[in-house]
């Protein structure tokens, strides 16, 4: 398996009220040579305009649906544009476009369909210890429920092949999609690898991150999902 030409790599960025940082995130991704699609999830600020003028392709949800829904929209957009590889990337400036090459390389090297970024294999900058423990607990829960051996279940930086992406059908609109994506990877039976990535925590990204209360809601979401088809 050879490296796909960079032209067919799409980076999906789901954004909700990220006007303050989205331009630099898009610039970072595009400077690294990838195509970027920003899914504006019904933002009330100027996220869409800023993202478009930064050069990203833009898809706008008419209403706010949640990050999971936005990622699914972005994945479908990229597939429709003939993407060979799709990368999901957070809009809040936590991720580094420099890490994308490592993920794509991992896909090719291991002949895998999913490369999942792990901050616990890589480095974290300024991570508060409460956040570290919450993420560790979430990963433990995911390992227990999916049987996947992952060290970081709630990392938004991942790469997938076209085949992998077509197995993903997110129905959890809100934050429970991170667990859902892993469930779907597990049930697809396709190969996945974990790749170290760097997460930069800033006051801005921390304010946008998940709390223990959110974690409880996520678990409830996942349970509710099992009660109906």
């Amino acid at each position: 398996m050879s490296m796909p030409p960079p032209d067919n790599i799409w980076v999906v960025i789901a954004a909700y009220n990220e006007a303050a940082v989205i331009a630099s995130v898009v610039a970072d991704v595009m400077a690294a040579g990838y195509r970027a699609v920003v899914v504006d999830d019904g933002s009330r600020d100027r996220t869409a305009e800023v993202a478009a003028s930064a050069g990203a392709a833009l898809v706008r949800h008419p209403i706010n649906l949640g990050q999971g829904a936005a990622l699914q929209t972005g994945i479908e957009f990229a597939l429709a544009r003939g993407a060979d590889t799709i990368v999901t990337f957070d809009a809040d400036g936590q991720h580094r476009a420099a890490d994308i090459a490592g993920l794509i390389d991992a896909l090719a090297r291991h002949n895998a369909d999913f490369a999942l970024g792990s901050r616990f294999l890589g480095t974290t900058v300024n991570i508060p210890s409460s956040r570290r423990w919450l993420l560790k607990a979430a990963s433990w829960f995911t390992r227990a429920t999916t049987g996947l051996s992952v060290t970081d279940s709630h990392n938004g930086l991942r790469a997938m092949t076209r085949r992998g992406a077509s197995h993903i059908q997110l129905r959890q609109n809100r934050m429970a999609h991170a667990s859902e994506i892993l469930h779907q990877i597990a049930s697809s039976g396709l190969k996945y690898v974990e790749t170290p990535v760097t997460i930069h925590y800033s006051a801005y990204s921390l304010a946008k991150g998940q709390t223990l209360f959110d974690a409880v809601l996520i678990v409830l979401d996942l349970l509710a999902r099992r009660l109906y088809r």
Partner: peptide, 23 residues
């Protein structure tokens, strides 16, 4: 509550279709 969630899924699919069509 579960029915509302199912409805939300329908709305999501509808909104996604609109968003992709406009894009």
């Amino acid at each position: 509550h579960l029915k509302l969630r199912a409805q939300m899924e329908l709305i999501t699919r509808l909104a996604r279709k609109i968003a992709l069509a406009e894009a």
